[in-house]
Design a protein around this nucleic acid. Structure first.
Lengths: 209, 209
DNA sequence: ACATATTGTGAATTATTATTCATAATATGA
DNA sequence: TCATATTATGAATAATAATTCACAATATGT
């Protein structure tokens, strides 16, 4: 058995698991965690309810797995960009632009990531944080580091790295949010370059006062 | 009966209703809509379940009433500021500063407003929008108008009023969010003035490039 | 072809919770 | 005080949905 790749059987099982996850992603992202039943996931994925429990311990666990993979996929796009060997301003600029790809590739992914994440950040939930929250944290940490060193070099104003991170994330997430809500209405490239403009140079015309 | 003020009985009933709403606000804001049962609200408010149904048609309706009043209270603070007869920049500046009061006065209110609002914006919910969403819309519209006229006058860069509104709201909401999550950790006044700084003048030191 | 192991099934079980309603408590007015 | 109306109660009901498990289908190796 122990080949580098898995046995046919194992691969098949994997595929099944992923089919279930795909359906679950679709449903959860459309209707929210509490408004999707295991029945529904089972029907849509053409498995029996019992089968779902062969793959996941329960609904929570299935959801957690989903969030984990969403967070992972987003992180895979964003992290490399934050680690490129270019100057701080360029890294932030690339980071902003990368959101175009994120939007294009993974609408349901972000939909789920954003919606369930934003709300559960406040609401106390004894579950589903570990993986997901960690990714968010790591990205924010990375951003914060970039701002910190950028501030030392005099590229950025010293508005506090944390505040800069918070502001940029907020603007980006909100924008992504808006695009997903009304797809097609907004030019993504355009919007992102405006986010960049405002974030870097501000909204005032004469920054004198 | 028809006095300007209500009869003792009616006032009493009102008080009861408000007690229930207060408890519901506390619970919903802590645990989220789906994780609070009518039983729980009943126990905490020292009424019987049945009594809740004398005041509200059901759980959804109770929640909707709550969201309505939250939105109303927030709107009551924010709208007058957006309508003051001062120049556009000042109005936005005051708007930002007003969030200090919002945070100070109504923590559970905003907690609920933000958490349930952000998540349900994406998730399809066949319910609870009317009042709440309307308030959000109105405030955004007002902000957008201010930016538009400010842009005409050359006070703001022409980054599109919608984009400016989106960015500012995002930064403010995110900040409020963060403060609520870790109370005491952050100086609100300080944070808001940094939001203002970044939003107006940007994060770059030399806006030349 | 057969025995064995693995994987899938879905009706039945169990839990939870929103909602109802017959009844009790209380207030009101004669 | 008594009859009536109003308001509150909470055990019982009804729905919904997560989870289990005895069994069926299928695959694997001999």
């Amino acid at each position: 058995m122990a080949t580098a790749s898995l046995s046919r059987k194992e691969r098949e099982r994997l595929r099944h698991k992923e089919e279930i996850l795909a359906v679950a992603l679709k449903l959860f992202s459309e209707k929210g965690f509490h408004n999707v039943s295991m029945q529904e996931i089972a029907e849509e994925s053409e498995f029996a309810v019992g089968t779902l429990y062969k793959f996941f311990e329960g609904k929570e666990s299935l959801f957690a797995a989903l969030m984990g993979s969403c967070a992972g996929r987003i992180s895979d796009i964003l992290m490399p960009i934050l680690e490129e060997e270019v100057d701080e301003r360029k890294r932030i600029s690339n980071y902003i632009k990368a959101h175009e790809q994120i939007i294009a590739d993974h609408v349901p992914t972000i939909r789920l990531y954003l919606s369930e994440n934003l709300s559960s950040a406040l609401t106390v939930r004894p579950d589903v944080e570990p993986e997901t929250d960690a990714v968010r944290e790591i990205i924010h940490q990375k951003l914060s580091d970039i701002f910190k060193s950028g501030m030392r070099k005099g590229i950025f104003k010293d508005a506090g790295p944390w505040m800069a991170t918070l502001s940029l994330s907020a603007m980006l997430e909100s924008f992504v949010f808006a695009v997903i809500k009304s797809p097609g209405q907004i030019s993504v490239e355009d919007g992102l370059s405006r986010v960049e403009e405002i974030f870097f140079k501000g909204s005032l015309r004469h920054s004198s006062a």
